[in-house]
Amino acid sequence: MNDALPDVRAFRLSPEVARPLRHGLPTVAVQTINAITAEVPAYRDAFAGEFGAKLERAVRAALGTFLELVSRAEESESRAPLASALEAAYVLGRGEARNGRSLAALLSAYRVGARVAWRELAAISVATEQPAPTVAHFAELVFAYIDELSAASAAGHADEVAASGRTQLLHRERLAHALISGEPEHALVAAAARAQWDPPRTLTAVLAPDRVARTIADQFDARTLRLSEAIPGAPDRSVLLIPEAHGNARATLLRRVKAHGVVVGPARPWIRALESFDRAVRALEVLRPDVRGGCLDTEDHLAALIVTADPQALADLRARVFAPLSGMSEAAVAKLLETLRSWLAHQGRRDEIAAELFVHPQTVRYRMTRLRQLYGDRLRDPDWIRSLTVALVAPNPA
C-alpha cells in the first residue's frame, strides 16, 4: 500500500452514513463497469457473456467489502474482509495474465473504477448531508483501498507471467527433444501446440558450446528452440533449432555465429529438423579438428560426410587399395601416398607435384615409377582411380 494514503482499516463510518451508501451500491457498480468498458479498450469485449457477469460480481464484492471495512464496529474484526478482498484481487491478477491481458490494462481499470466509484459514492454522501471533512477523508479511503487491491492484482499478474514463462520454457525444451528424437508428425504438432509455438517453415540445427548457446539464441527469432541436455556425439554442446534460416538468411546465420565454434546443419522443414541435427552431429564427429574457434558449415563438407557415412566400408576400401604397399616401412608408404595424392590432384603434372611436395621433379618421377610397379595397369583404370581418390582424400572418421 502507498504510505502516503491512510489505512482503510482504521476508519469507521456510522451506520447512518453507511446505510445509503450500501443501498446505492448496485448503481455504483453498474456505473463503474460502464466506465471501465468505455475507457479501457482491453475490457470492451471482456464484460460480454459469462465472464462479464463474473467481473460485475467482483466489482460489487470489492465495493461491498470496502463499505464493510469502513463501517465495522470492532477493530479486531477489520482484517478479515480486507484479506479476503486482497486474495480475490490477487486471483484476478493471475486470471488476467492467463487471459493475455496486460498489467497496464488492469491498472487502468482500477484507476477508472476508483474515480467513478468515488464520484458516485461522494454524490450519495453529499446528498445525505455529510460534513465536508468526512467526505474528503472518505475520498482518501477509497483510493487507499484501490491502491491495496491494485498492488495485490499486480503481484498476482507478475506471478502468473513468471509461472507461465517457466511452463512455456519447459514445453519448448520438450518440443526440441521431440524434434531431434524423430517423434511422429502428430506428436510434434501436439507438442508445438502445448508450447504455444508457431511452427516456422524451416529449422536449422546448430550445435553450440554450452557457454555461448544462450548468447547465440538471443540473436535470432523468438521461436528458436534450445536444448542443453547431454547429447550423444556432442558433449558439452547445446542444440539450437533456429527458424527461417534458409535461402539468403543462411548467410546471416553463419555471420552471426562464425566466432563461436559451432556446427551448422542444413535448413529443413520444421517437421524434419532431425535431419539437420543428424548431419550436424555427424559433421562434428568426422570433422572435429576443423571446428576450433570458427564455424563449420555442413554445406561445405558434403563430400566428406558422404564418403565417411560408413566408417567400416571406408576402412575396408583403404585396406584393399593400399594392399600393394603392404610390407613397406611406414615412412616409405607415407611418401608414396603423399605423392599419389598429389598426382591425382594435379592429374600427373610432374612440375606441379614437385612444387607442392617441395621435392625435385626427378624424385616425383622415381616415386611414380615405383607406384606403377606396385599397382601396374590399375593406375589407368577409372574405377580404381576413383577408389584411390576416395581412400586418399576422405577424412578419418572419429
Rank of each mutant, 00 (worst) to 15 (best):
R282P: 03
P243I: 01
H346A: 11
R378W: 02
A151E: 12
D381K: 09
L107W: 03
L336E: 10
S108D: 10
H23N: 10
P324R: 00
R318Q: 14
L55M: 14
L67W: 06
T167N: 10
V212N: 05
A355W: 00
R341E: 15
R279M: 03
T252I: 04
K335G: 04
D3K: 13
V257A: 07
R94H: 12
A29S: 15
A105N: 01
D290T: 11
D7Y: 00
A334Q: 13
T204F: 01
V263Q: 04
T27L: 08
F358Y: 10
T37Y: 00
R44G: 15
I180Y: 05
P269A: 02
E75I: 04
D310Q: 08
E87K: 15
V321T: 00
L13P: 12
E16Y: 04
A123E: 02
H137N: 15
E183H: 05
A283Y: 04
G247W: 02
R44T: 12
L121D: 08
V212C: 09
E338Y: 00
P20C: 02
R349K: 14
R166M: 11
V212I: 07
L149T: 06
I216D: 12
L284F: 05
H360G: 05
P324M: 07
I271H: 08
R79E: 15
S181Q: 10
G376A: 02
G165E: 15
D290Y: 10
L371D: 09
D218R: 10
A35M: 00
A4I: 07
P361K: 04
G95M: 08
A35D: 06
A222S: 14
R268S: 11
W270E: 00
H301I: 07
E120S: 13
N34S: 13
R256E: 15
E330H: 09
M368Y: 06
M1H: 14
P311G: 04
R22I: 10
L103Y: 11
M368K: 02
I231R: 02
V359T: 05
A315P: 02
R349G: 03
E50T: 14
V59G: 10
S76K: 04
R268T: 15
A323Q: 11
F277I: 04
N99V: 04
S71Y: 06
A61S: 14
R226A: 11
A315K: 08
V8N: 06
P311T: 04
S76F: 06
V91I: 11
T32P: 12
L92P: 09
E229M: 06
I124T: 13
P243C: 02
A58S: 14
R60I: 13
I353R: 03
L296G: 09
F358K: 14
